[in-house]
Design a protein around this nucleic acid. Structure first.
Lengths: 139, 139
DNA sequence: ACGCAACTTTAGACATAGTCTAAAACTGCG
DNA sequence: CGCAGTTTTAGACTATGTCTAAAGTTGCGT
């Protein structure tokens, strides 16, 4: 049961579960659609119509603070959220604006540790481009 | 003369120069402080106090469209602009939010070309962390 | 130099994303 | 039950950015 998982995750992270927080977590901790805050609000309202905007924002901020989510600043229009499971890179489709995950070991970054003046805590490669059309099958 | 340069740059890029556009260009095409749109407005008003907010936004958008600037979505609070000279990476100081340029050849990214499903037009490494304090000189 | 068309600038209205506030509603627990 | 602390809520507020319609410039043919 996804709801059970979420409730446990919240408790393990030191977040007191509430119906609203579990509803937000059920969606945002298991999605790969890289939602903005308002998309999270919309999705959660589908199953929990009376939840308020402020609660969704508060909850997302709490999840980020507790390390359950990453806040990403990649998109043209707004900040988006990404469940912080394993680290990965991002590819942004310049035509649609859609964001795709790129598995961590598909590209390698070298010499980050040689930067003398910076202590790097984390990093990612951000790529932009288009989806290859040559890979469509049939005709 | 910087003003002359900017005017020539605009003309060469197919942008009709105007006093306002040159004033914006004089600042934003030669800065490394990674300004937000409103910081550009503030800076330009120091020398050109009657320029309007809409003009600054219009001009920045025009410069991005024509390839003179990059729009970056790295910062916590807003979109920032970066003169598109040579490509480089970015390091974000988690304490101050300041953005530092990292020269292109200080780190290397491998296997970008092996991504079958994406046609990558450009990419950069985005790093987060803190400034190493051991390297401060004097105080 | 004149005058028109096209372009640029402007102030302010509008839109959107996000935060804050103060009151109401819940929760855990003695 | 009842209190203290936490959470939720609506709506006001702020900041960032776009749009609009009018006014101002510019380029250019005559």
């Amino acid at each position: 049961m996804r709801t059970k998982d979420t409730e446990t995750t919240l408790r393990d992270t030191g977040i007191q579960p509430s119906a609203q927080r579990v509803a937000v977590g059920d969606y945002v901790l298991h999605t790969d659609e890289h939602p903005s805050a308002d998309l999270v609000w919309k999705r959660v309202r589908e199953r929990f119509p009376w939840i308020s905007r402020a609660t969704v924002y508060n909850t997302l901020n709490l999840f980020v603070e507790k390390g359950l989510l990453q806040r990403l600043h990649l998109a043209e229009d707004s900040v988006i959220f990404d469940p912080k499971t394993d680290t990965h890179h991002h590819f942004i489709d310049e035509e649609s604006g859609a964001i795709h995950d790129v598995p961590w070991d598909r590209v390698q970054v070298c010499n980050v540790e040689t930067l003398r003046e910076f202590e790097v805590h984390d990093y990612q490669v951000v790529m932009r481009g288009t989806l290859k059309s040559g890979r469509r099958r049939s005709h």
